[in-house]
């Protein structure tokens, strides 16, 4: 029933999780399970990717779970999640321990401030690319702008904003 052995699934997913630094993280998965290995077909990958973005929850772990389930059922999904989240969680907990215990000397604080400013550049570019690729109509642009102003500028509660805007967006994008 399972397409791959559980041990190789864990190895490949853990490696993909550990090496996927920076933007475009799903691209690393495409490389690992479609390009390098005959595990998943391209159209299957696209389906899983769309679903991962559509579903609530962190995209990257959603994608890992969906691919894992496809390759090895429930167990595959569970192992995929553990393999992708576990190593990073341990590393970040260790970094957090250092950060909060040692505190930052003024110099390391400067380092962090510089990196934080550069991260803003990274997420600006990433978001702009996604907007350019995915927003093609005036209603879609209006919905995105409305959500941005409500949540970002006016600081409206996100749940409230979603509850207000999603029905409008569904109506604008209804099947016809």
């Amino acid at each position: 029933m399972n397409r791959v052995r559980m041990r190789s699934l864990v190895r490949v997913f853990a490696w993909t999780g550990l090496t996927s630094l920076g933007g475009g993280r799903s691209a690393y998965f495409f490389d690992a399970v479609v390009t390098r290995r005959p595990w998943v077909r391209t159209e299957e990958f696209v389906q899983d990717l769309t679903l991962a973005q559509l579903l609530p929850g962190p995209n990257f772990s959603n994608l890992a779970v969906l691919l894992g389930c496809r390759l090895g059922g429930w167990r595959g999904g569970a192992w995929a999640l553990a393999a992708v989240v576990g190593p990073g969680a341990v590393i970040l907990a260790a970094l957090a321990a250092v950060y909060f215990r040692v505190g930052f000397t003024p110099r390391t604080a400067h380092l962090m401030h510089g990196m934080a400013a550069a991260v803003i550049g990274l997420i600006v570019v990433m978001t702009a690319r996604m907007v350019r690729a995915s927003i093609r109509t005036v209603p879609a642009a209006a919905i995105a702008a409305l959500v941005f102003v409500l949540v970002g500028v006016l600081r409206v509660n996100t749940v409230v904003a979603i509850a207000l805007v999603v029905p409008v967006s569904l109506w604008l994008h209804r099947p016809r």
Partner: peptide, 16 residues
């Protein structure tokens, strides 16, 4: 199609 612009608006708010 309806959720894509909502998600992107939220992302932009996150950047902000």
């Amino acid at each position: 199609r309806a959720l894509v612009p909502v998600g992107l608006g939220l992302m932009a708010a996150g950047v902000f």
